[in-house]
Amino acid sequence: MRYARGMAPLNLQSLLNVVRRVHHGMTLGVRVMARDGEGRLLLVRHTYIAGWHFPGGGVDLGETAEAAARRELREEANVEAEGALALAGLFFNPRVGGRDHVALFHAERLAIGPRPARNTEIVAADFFPLDALPDGVSPATARRIAEWRQGLPPADRW
């Protein structure tokens, strides 16, 4: 059997490991609960899903979850998180393929640029007072806000 230099020959166990990894692989997304200096929450509306959500998206190959969270804040809302992000929880998201997870971060020190114009992904991005959240906040976002406001432990599902 010929194989590339430095690679072991493929055997049944390594083939099973590859199949298992593909079949049981996990996807990871991030969301950021970001608050400005007045305590207002940053929410975004996407073009492809209903409701208001925390900024976020998928973690790219070779990217850390925190780096993805920072990138999504910049891309979706023109906001830079200053200092470390705090991991608030890791949630199972059964509605996305049955193996998706969402890492939620908190960010409270922000450098806020001008609100971005509507684009192919984001319809709107803005900060809202806790007592005046917009209509249509997504159920998962509403759950995370309620847990945070009431000091409750986070549920395990997004």
Rank of each mutant, 00 (worst) to 15 (best):
R71D: 10
L61W: 11
E75H: 06
V44L: 10
L42N: 13
L61D: 08
G57I: 02
T64K: 09
H46E: 13
E63D: 11
E66W: 04
T64C: 03
D100R: 13
A50G: 10
L90G: 08
L85T: 09
P55R: 01
M33E: 11
L28Q: 09
E72W: 02
N78P: 11
M26Q: 14
L85Y: 02
A69R: 01
G39H: 04
F54C: 13
F91E: 03
D60M: 15
G89C: 09
F91W: 04
E72D: 06
E80F: 00
A77K: 01
M33P: 04
D36V: 00
V96T: 12
E75K: 07
V30I: 04
R74L: 15
A50C: 08
A86Q: 14
A81N: 04
N78L: 06
G97Y: 12
G58Q: 06
E108M: 03
L104T: 11
D60G: 09
R45S: 09
L43N: 04
V59H: 07
G37D: 15
D36Y: 00
E108D: 14
E75A: 09
A84M: 06
L61F: 13
R74Q: 14
G29F: 13
F105D: 04
F54D: 08
A107E: 00
R31N: 13
N78S: 12
F105W: 12
F92L: 12
G37W: 01
N78C: 11
A81R: 00
G83Q: 05
H106C: 05
V30F: 01
D60W: 06
A86D: 08
R95T: 14
E82R: 15
A65T: 08
G37L: 07
